[in-house]
Design a binder for these strands. Structure first.
Lengths: 184, 184
DNA sequence: TGTACATCAGTGAACGCGCGTTCACTGATGTAC
DNA sequence: TGTACATCAGTGAACGCGCGTTCACTGATGTAC
């Protein structure tokens, strides 16, 4: 097994363990090793401690998230269309990877501060804000507001899986946009 | 020590342990016993198992939440005023008891389904919906939408305590209301 | 009123578990001469 | 090309920890006669 091989295998296993609904916290070091069919001590060849592994996991999740957002964007499209696509991609990513979403947006600060490099996410917010301006959104609609709104949608759906909602998720997003004066 | 005494002391200790930011999960049975200055086995006189204690804790948190909402309401006020008060009370409760908020709205389903009796919360939603109608809110603004929006505000603030927001929490609530056509 | 007894809320020791971490080790790979 | 050696990614045994849970127990309180 090549050195690089196990390193990324461990990270991938950690992501896979954290991904589904079940994950209430970061996966244990031993669980990650087990998932790779490797002894617990082998992990220490690649990460100096559990918190080092956690840090790597959270950074990895962050880049997975950023990549998903970037992949959903097409700068050639009109701003309003791009905004809609961002929103749906954000909500889609969250609901498809509830465990990762939870770790990225609802746990990182508990697991230890400054785990997540926030520059990329902040850039994203700046970009979205520019799109909002380009769409002629009112001064009282910021990327932060949009983020809060979308987060609320994702978070509640993810945490109340049994609940029956009176309106579909996609439709609810569109309704938010309409209220913000950003209807289709 | 009277029997009833320890029972509620344990519950109160569990709430206190869960309340602050630190709480990443439900407090352990031993930690609760320790906080009451009592042996771990004493807990079994009052709760049949850890999950029984958890269930009681979550139900207790739910009633604390419902009580806080009820206390903030004054049926004598005009509907719009009542809506505003509900919103601020909801967000205030969440940010003042982040650990409880997290357990009530972002963990319950992970800890074991049907822990929380949802009737009271559903009633609350129904009441809020009635208030929205009474305020002449558009058909595309439901209590669910309001809940999602407010939850997004609370959740992100609670989970990103270090983040600097471009607008204060109270102002952001009012901005949401304005967008919904429910300005002051 | 005093004695015998049942009740029951508490105790402390012990269990097996998964955890993070350490330690001395093994054995394959790569390099120096 | 062959031999000696260093490197280093892996192993398994062991540690101490906090956890939930069990067990036999103690000692105060309340009741029956």
């Amino acid at each position: 097994m090549r050195a690089e091989g196990l390193h990324s295998k461990l990270l991938a296993a950690a992501v896979e363990l954290a991904s589904p609904r079940l994950a209430t916290a970061v996966p244990s070091l031993r669980a990650v090793a087990r998932a790779c069919g490797v002894s617990a001590t082998a992990v220490y060849r690649h990460f100096s401690s559990q918190s080092d592994l956690n840090r790597a996991l959270l950074m990895h999740i962050d880049s997975v998230f950023i990549d998903a957002m970037a992949a959903s964007d097409d700068p050639g499209l009109p701003p309003l269309k791009r905004l809609h696509q961002f929103a749906h991609a954000y909500v889609g990513w969250g609901t498809q990877h509830p465990g990762l979403y939870q770790l990225r947006f609802e746990s990182a600060d508990q697991l230890g501060a400054d785990y997540v490099r926030t520059e990329a996410a902040d850039e994203l917010l700046t970009d979205v804000d520019a799109l909002l301006r380009a769409c002629g959104a009112g001064p009282d609609v910021t990327a932060e507001d949009l983020w809060c709104g979308l987060h609320g949608l994702v978070s509640l759906r993810v945490h109340k899986p049994g609940r029956v909602w009176s309106v579909g998720l996609e439709a609810q997003i569109d309704r938010f946009f309409t209220l913000w004066g950003l209807g289709r």
